[in-house]
Each structure stands twice: as C-alpha cells, then as structure tokens.
C-alpha cells in the first residue's frame, strides 16, 4: 500500500513536469555521453588485471620515475 502510494507520487510528479522534461532529457543525454561514449572510448582504466599486477605496475612506475642525483 505504502509502496503503491510512493510509486503514484513519483508517476504523478513526472507526468506533471513541464520544464523538468527538458532538464531530464539533458541529464539523460549527458549521462549517455559520459558513460557510453567518454568512459567507454576515451577513459579506460589505465591499470588492468589482478590487484597484484596493478601493484607491480605502480611500484615500478613509482621507483623508476625517481630523480637521480
């Protein structure tokens, strides 16, 4: 009963939106661009593999980049 009232509250709220429809469209478009385009094609996680492999990669990066006298 409570769940039905909550669902009804949201459904009626979304139906009565005016400017909100435009804003939701922009939010969804933005999320699509971020996750389906940017994250998928331009921002892969640099560190790959098991935690041990990541650990080894970072350790070697951090020790190799040290300045020399």
């Amino acid at each position: 009963m409570l769940l039905r009232r909550i669902v009804k509250f949201y459904v009626e709220g979304f139906r009565s939106m005016t400017l909100g429809r435009t804003l939701w469209f922009i939010i969804l478009l933005k999320l699509f661009i971020m996750f389906a385009v940017l994250k998928a094609f331009f921002f892969p996680s640099y560190l790959q593999g098991e935690p041990e492999e990541k650990e080894a990669t970072v350790a070697s990066e951090l020790t190799d980049r040290a300045a020399t006298e």
């Binding site: 940017l38 921002f43 996680s45 640099y46 560190l47 990541k54 970072v58 990066e61 951090l62």
Partner: peptide, 16 residues
C-alpha cells in the same frame, strides 16, 4: 568526469 580522470590520467595517484 573527474573520477574518470583519476582512473585514466592519474592511475598512480589513484592506486597510491
């Protein structure tokens, strides 16, 4: 987007 950048551009930082 900033969190994406941590994972891609700042991976040593993110791990460290």
């Amino acid at each position: 987007i900033l969190e994406f950048e941590f994972g891609t551009n700042w991976s040593n930082y993110s791990w460290f």
